[in-house]
């Protein structure tokens, strides 16, 4: 199963590297959003809760773009049916898709977080990078599971480009809560975390529940 998942993942990564569709689009989206926030708030530098909220909301919105593209290749070229004909576990398909989304998100954040530090963040970013990195990584695991499930749910509907985002956004509210709450003290005084364990715990709980749920439910989305 893991071998199959890795094969599909390798295919997705190769397609992404060749066509460069999702990650550059997501990165471009976040940087443009930061520019919009600069003018929207009419502030040169953000700090505290506003900075934390801006970063997290932008990243979560960028995830929508990634989720929309996640099943695009399969849908446009009928690859999913072909994959279903192959003797592989459905769970492998889910794992591959979630891992691909996870990699997209990590790649996006490698660009978006420094860009945020450069363009908008007032306090020093470097001091709080370890805590922020941990938060983003745990959040990304939860996002990858939710995104892969929602993407598959929406992929077969007629209005998928509407249903997908509308489904995903309420589902990520707990991550926005935990992320913004935990990052706010970091962006007030660099390196000073408050209740970090608690919010990481909530994100971990979210990730665990949605990974288990998605593994259990994904089979039912692909059978025909």
């Amino acid at each position: 199963m893991v071998v199959d998942a890795l094969a599909i993942l390798r295919k997705d990564i190769r397609v992404e590297l060749r066509a460069r569709e999702a990650v550059p689009a997501m990165a471009l989206f976040t940087v443009t959003a930061f520019v919009l926030f600069h003018f929207g708030f009419d502030r040169d530098r953000l700090d505290g809760d506003v900075a934390a909220g801006t970063l997290w909301v932008t990243l979560l919105l960028a995830t929508v773009l990634g989720v929309n593209r996640l099943y695009a290749a399969e849908r446009e070229q009928g690859g999913l049916e072909a994959m279903l004909l192959a003797p592989i576990d459905r769970t492998a398909i889910f794992l591959a898709k979630a891992a691909a989304l996870l990699l997209y998100l990590v790649a996006l954040e490698l660009v978006a977080v420094p860009a945020f530090g450069l363009l908008l963040l007032g306090p020093d970013l470097v001091g709080s990078l370890p805590e922020l990195g941990a938060l983003l990584l745990v959040a990304d695991i939860g996002l990858a599971a939710t995104g892969a499930l929602v993407g598959a749910l929406a992929a077969e509907t007629r209005a998928r480009e509407l249903i997908g985002p509308l489904l995903l956004l309420p589902l990520v509210v707990p991550l926005a809560i935990a992320g913004a709450q935990a990052t706010e003290p970091l962006f007030t005084a660099p390196g000073v975390a408050e209740n970090l364990g608690r919010w990481l715990g909530l994100m971990g709980l979210y990730a665990t529940i949605f990974v288990l749920l998605s593994v259990a439910l994904f089979d039912f989305l692909l059978e025909d």
């Binding site: 499930l149 749910l153 077969e156 509907t157 007629r158 209005a159 249903i163 489904l167 309420p170 589902l171 509210v173 707990p174 809560i177 935990a178 909530l202 709980l205 979210y206 529940i209 949605f210 749920l213 439910l217 039912f220 989305l221 059978e223 025909d224």
Partner: peptide, 30 residues
């Protein structure tokens, strides 16, 4: 927005299960 009745029922069920789990989780978070 799903035409096939069998698929409609399955997809709606997946949504309903995920939604129920999310409802509990969301209350904890808020």
């Amino acid at each position: 927005s799903i035409d096939d009745p069998g698929r409609q029922a399955r997809y709606a069920s997946v949504f309903a299960i995920a939604g129920a789990a999310f409802t509990v989780l969301n209350f904890v978070a808020v």
